[in-house]
């Protein structure tokens, strides 16, 4: 089977999962105790206004009708309107915030993977000596630290005490130079953007980095004990080549699985990171929506978070299939 065919299949499998997600979210939001319309229109509204709102939002219809209508609507990309933002379509609001969160996620994962893999390999290579212990302790602390606290500490040290980096906000690298304070050229924008990105990326990436380091180390150790690595040694292949080639590719399979699991943690972490650094992304959006009890917005953002997760896992699965030939060809042999 080709990789494209495989991706196609996996995409098809996403549909029922998303449908279930929509259903769960819908049921959840509609099981709010009390009258949602009253919350919508505010406590001072009179009976007529409540009734008008009820009709306006279609809340006079039975639950299953609304469910079917909602399904039909989101199939066309219509997630309703946000009350908190004065009737702006939810989709528009989400699309405005999505790039911010994606930028944050991509940069933090790049940072995490980029440091974790060499660190894990290094630890495995130096098994049980002091570098290994140091790496293991570091990663243990890493998986046990609340990410938002890391953010606070970073702000204290790098923004308040040393004034090296900005404590809040995020500038997109593709923003027009005019819209960014003190920037006259694309280069300025990029520099500003990078300086804003460093602290949030570390904050969000710490946990991922620690988790990936641990799995990289143990996975590498396991592979280094395999017969085919012994065979490579028996044929005179150097330890360096084994680490870089023979063992490395195999060791990444469990690592990919863990990265897949970390996506869900990272999406939650994005909410915290955006709160700590006052970044206007999806995370801040959902918090705002919840605080304002803006239900259409809550549902929309929740579903979009699920979409991000599912697509992230898809990318991981495809990578897995690319590395492991037993998967992409159907895997019936083993």
């Amino acid at each position: 089977m080709t990789t494209a065919g495989y991706i196609g299949r996996r995409l098809l499998q996403i549909v029922p999962v998303l449908w279930f997600v929509v259903t769960v979210t819908f049921v959840l939001i509609n099981s709010i105790p009390g009258d949602p319309v009253r919350i919508l229109v505010g406590p001072s509204a009179d009976a007529a206004a409540i009734e008008a709102a009820r009709v306006q939002y279609g809340l006079d219809q039975p639950l299953y009708v609304r469910y079917v209508k909602y399904l039909a609507a989101i199939a066309t990309g219509d997630f309703g309107t946000s009350i908190h933002y004065g009737g702006v379509p939810v989709t528009a609001k989400i699309l405005e915030r999505l790039p911010v969160t994606l930028l944050l996620l991509v940069s933090s994962f790049t940072l995490a993977i980029g440091t974790a893999i060499p660190l894990g390999v290094f630890a495995a290579k130096n098994r049980n000596n002091r570098y290994d212990h140091l790496a293991r302790i570091t990663s243990l602390v890493g998986v046990s630290t609340p990410s938002f606290w890391v953010g606070l500490l970073l702000i204290i040290v790098f923004a308040y005490y040393t004034n090296l980096l900005p404590p809040s906000g995020l500038v997109m690298p593709w923003a027009p130079p005019g819209s960014v304070e003190g920037a006259t050229s694309r280069l300025d924008v990029l520099a500003t953007s990078a300086s804003h990105l460093i602290l949030p990326s570390i904050t969000l990436g710490t946990l991922q980095m620690a988790a990936i380091t641990r799995i990289e180390r143990s996975s590498m150790l396991e592979v280094l004990n395999k017969d085919y690595v012994q065979l490579a040694r028996a044929y005179g292949i150097s330890e360096r080549t084994i680490l870089r080639k023979q063992a490395f590719k195999n060791a990444q399979l469990p690592v990919l699985t863990v990265i897949g699991i970390q996506i869900t943690t990272a999406l939650g972490g994005a909410v915290l990171t955006e709160t700590v650094f006052n970044i206007n992304g999806m995370g801040n959006l959902i918090i705002t929506a919840v605080r304002a009890q803006d239900y259409q917005l809550i549902m929309g953002t929740t579903i979009f978070f699920a979409i991000m997760f599912v697509l992230g896992v898809l990318v991981v699965d495809v990578l897995y299939a690319v590395i492991d030939p037993r998967i992409s060809y159907g895997g019936a042999d083993e």
Binding site: Y228, L231, A232, A234, Y235, G236, Q246, K249, R326
Partner: peptide, 22 residues
């Protein structure tokens, strides 16, 4: 020595070949 002068064959042919390389 290894490979050039003395080569080796292991018991389990399944485990002896690296699954991710041709």
């Amino acid at each position: 020595i290894r490979g050039r002068e003395i080569a080796m064959i292991f018991q389990d042919p399944t485990e002896s070949l690296n699954p991710v390389f041709t």
